[in-house]
Design a protein around this nucleic acid. Structure first.
Length: 385
RNA sequence: GUGGGUGUAGCUUAAUUGGUUAAAGCGUCCGCCUGUGGAGCGGAAGACCUGAGGGUUCAAGUCCCUUCACCCACC
């Protein structure tokens, strides 16, 4: 059985329906990974996630390395056992967090020198170290350490970044093979994916894709996006990258995005996603709800449930949603919970937004299965009032 | 009834003690959030101008008088 199977291709776009066979179960694609940074999707239990149809979650190397430490998690039998999550886990390399969270950051050949944001201690995250940590966590999909610039993109800096990423990718792969061959993996079925960089420079994307392809990873992530660039710039970067990757391997788009971004990226050939948006915005009272455009096509809106207009709104957050909160509670009640700073507000909002995203992915897969994805994608956008 | 105190934005308070267009927090409204930040940030409206009315003064939220409301103490 192939690691990644393409079940159906959209005749009108690069979109495809597929399945990734991980060591902890199948992941139907296109798929969205809820983010469980510290070994928990904030406020949600593993059983609940599974019940709603989540097949995979993303956890962060950087955070878990700091606390409780990957050695402790290995002792617990790996992250799956530690958090009682029986399905797949995707781990970041820690590169992005060093980029976005660490107080000081210096890219060196050895790795990234930085200071932990939590205790101020400095450390070097090397390609090998990242693999060792992810090996201890026992994730199903691990990522190589990569280097990338922020937005606005500069050519020379981006060129250095893809070169650095390729050199680190070689070292990461070697370390991954060393650990695997030694039989020291917490998860023997773990796979290491490569990352393509290159900002939105066509020649750099192409070169990076070719160099990473040469290392023969079982899947790829497209990185260097979701770093502050506008949506069209992000989509251009995807367009520049996809043609240079093998059709038969899965492609993950790192850090993306809004429901609109995701549909657009699926059209362009991306298979999986991860993003803080549904969970972080839930904590900030921003909820995603179903809507229709003027022609009656499927679309969506966002609402800020704290607004006074919902004070006496005794209807569900989203009539079309089957999450626990929508089946059980009213907008007025959830608004009240936010206004009162009650923990249940975060929980209900997070459950809702995750369900909205998981439902969206299911709609995308149904549309691909039944061959109307192109029409679906055409009308699908955020309706702003 | 007597004495004392307090009245400033929807709410809680400020105003260098008589000195420019009365300030802030909360709340309200608008926006931001993209390989997690249960954090924050930016902006706006809001006082028919300081309970009401009158007076002193070049100048009053601030001083004086009257009145109203509320609070406390004593009869």
């Amino acid at each position: 059985m192939e690691y990644f199977e393409i079940l159906k291709k959209d005749p009108n776009s690069k979109a495809r329906l597929g399945v990734i066979h991980t060591a902890h179960g199948d992941v139907l694609t296109p798929y969205f990974n809820p983010i469980g940074t510290k070994g928990t999707v904030k406020s949600i239990t593993s059983e609940e996630l599974k019940f709603w149809g989540a097949d995979m979650i993303l956890a962060n190397t950087y955070h878990l390395w700091q606390r409780p430490g990957d050695a402790l998690i290995a002792k617990a039998g790996g992250l799956h056992k530690f958090m009682n999550w029986k399905n797949a886990i995707f781990t970041d390399s820690g590169g992005y967090q060093v980029f976005s969270l660490a107080k000081m950051r210096q890219v060196m050949e050895a790795g990234v020198l930085f200071r932990f944001d939590m205790d101020g201690k400095s450390a070097i995250l090397s390609p090998e170290k990242s693999i060792q940590i992810q090996s201890n966590l026992g994730s199903d999909i691990a990522l190589i350490l990569d280097d990338f610039p922020g937005f606005p993109f500069e050519y020379e800096r981006t060129k250095q970044a893809i070169e650095q990423t390729t050199r680190w990718a070689e070292r990461a792969k070697k370390e991954f093979e060393r650990i695997t061959e030694a039989g020291n993996s917490v998860n023997p079925g773990q796979k290491l994916w490569g990352i393509v960089q290159g900002a939105s420079f066509p020649d750099l994307r192409e070169r990076s894709a070719k160099e990473i392809r040469a290392l023969d990873f079982p899947g790829y992530a497209i990185g260097g996006v979701a770093v502050g660039e506008p949506t069209d710039e992000m989509l251009k970067a995807v367009d520049m990258t996809i043609p240079h990757l093998e059709e038969e391997k899965p492609r993950h788009l790192l850090g993306v995005g809004t429901p609109y971004d995701i549909v657009q990226a699926v059209l362009r050939g991306c298979d999986s996603f991860d993003c803080v948006i549904p969970t972080r915005e839930a904590r900030h009272a921003k909820l995603y709800i179903s809507s229709r455009d003027q022609q009656g096509r499927e679309a969506y809106k966002t609402i800020d449930i704290r607004k006074a207009e919902f004070a006496e709104d005794f209807t569900p957050v989203d009539n079309e949603c089957d999450c626990y909160g929508c089946l059980s509670h009213t907008r007025a009640y959830i608004r009240h919970l936010f206004a009162s700073d009650e923990p249940l507000s975060i929980r209900l909002a997070t459950m809702h937004n995750i369900k909205f995203y998981l439902n969206l992915m299911k709609k995308i897969r149904n549309a691909l299965e039944n061959e109307y994805f192109n029409e679906f994608a055409e009308g699908f956008k955020e309706i702003k009032e």
